[in-house]
Amino acid sequence: MNINSSAIDIAKRTFQNESTSIANLANLLNNQFELAVKCILQSKGRVIISGVGKSALIASKIVATLNSTGTPAIFMHAADAIHGDLGTILKDDVVICISKSGNTEEIKMLIPLIKRGKNKLIGLTGNLDSVLARQADFVLNTHIEKEACPNNLAPTTSTTAQLVMGDALAIALLEIRGFSSEDFAKYHPGGSLGKRLYLRVEDIVSNNLKPHVTLDTPVKKAIVEISEKMLGVTAVTDQGKVVGIITDGDIRRMLNQHDNIKNLTASDIMTKNPKTISSDVLAIKAMEMLRENGISQLLVLDKGKYRGVIHIHNLINEGLG
């Protein structure tokens, strides 16, 4: 153990090593990247990504990124491919092989099998003099000067470079295809990420009760309405149109100002021009409005008609908080 080395200093040195190498990838890009992107875009098949060791783990992550951004992809371990899994590759598929050295035995054995099937091969390697680089139809150069490992052995900077090149490939395909946030939502329907992209106010408000009083409703009945509907507010309407809102705060202010509330009506204590939101708006927008205005509820309208109330707790429960 080198007790003279600070853990923080080591971390900073690692960051510097990897960030410098990643920045240098921009200098290694050439028309091979554009041709590889074009090849994938024109393909009628999938992208099959293969590797061994740490490169196989990177391949799996790139596959996940491609799938989530509209490019169908499958991971195929190079060792398994030469022992029966070669059938994963269909005639229209594009194959990407990942290898730092480009001379990994499993990759070298796999290359002629891919070529025999007449599939296009993209090599993602840091060695342009390798078998993979020479045999690939297109080469994505991920060369690094050295690993972050002080012994220059453990795959660290090299796998980071592979990962970043995979991200660049996925984003290029995404943008050229015009992959939208709506498309993204189709691939991410679960969790808070998906909900930010597709969940709308109407999906939530329909599950809530609908507190409602009119201008001449006695205050006592308005308080009961707020209590029974359990949303801390009630809308005040006039001939079906929202004209105000009564909140818990309005009730407290009334009690501080009036000893006798018997003759008071909703119109006497309501707040005019309440904050509203359309039912077809994304729910995340409702959360933004609540935070911007420092309030807990919004009245929901559907083409101007009162639909109900959305509460900040509804949004937090959906993971949007």
Rank of each mutant, 00 (worst) to 15 (best):
V63D: 00
R196S: 06
A148F: 14
L66S: 10
S99E: 11
N141M: 10
I98G: 08
V164C: 00
G166R: 08
L174C: 12
V63C: 14
Q162G: 11
D167V: 05
A168I: 03
I74Y: 05
N152D: 15
L57W: 05
S130P: 11
S60G: 09
E147I: 12
A59G: 02
G191A: 04
D129Y: 14
L153P: 03
I62S: 01
T125W: 10
N67L: 02
N127G: 01
G126V: 02
T156P: 09
G166T: 09
H188T: 07
G191S: 08
L174E: 04
S180T: 15
T125I: 10
A161E: 01
L173T: 05
P189A: 05
P189E: 07
D93C: 09
L132D: 11
K146V: 03
Q135R: 13
E145Y: 00
A168C: 14
K100F: 06
V94K: 07
V131A: 13
M109K: 15
E182W: 00
A81F: 11
D137N: 15
H188I: 08
N141T: 10
G126W: 00
E147Q: 12
F184I: 00
F138V: 09
M165F: 01
E145H: 03
S55Q: 11
G194A: 09
L121T: 11
K100I: 03
T69H: 03
G87E: 11
K61T: 03
K108L: 08
K108C: 14
T156C: 06
N152H: 09
S68N: 14
C149S: 14
L193Y: 06
T69F: 04
Q162W: 02
R196K: 15
L173P: 06
Y187V: 08
R196I: 07
I98M: 15
I58Q: 06
S181P: 01
H143L: 07
I82E: 07
L128A: 11
A185H: 06
K146C: 07
L169F: 08
E175A: 10
G117C: 11
T159P: 00
L124N: 07
I74P: 02
G87D: 11
T160V: 08
L169N: 05
Q162N: 13
F184H: 03
T125F: 11
T65P: 10
T157A: 10
A59W: 03
N103K: 13
R177S: 14
V63A: 12
H188P: 05
T69G: 06
L110Q: 04
A64V: 07
A56Y: 13
K195D: 04
M76G: 02
T88I: 15
F138D: 02
K146S: 12
E106Q: 11
T157S: 12
E182I: 12
L140T: 03
A79P: 00
A136D: 13
Q162P: 02
F184N: 01
I114G: 04
N67C: 15
E182F: 08
M76I: 14
L86K: 14
A133I: 13
T69R: 04
R196A: 04
V95N: 05
F75L: 06
V94N: 05
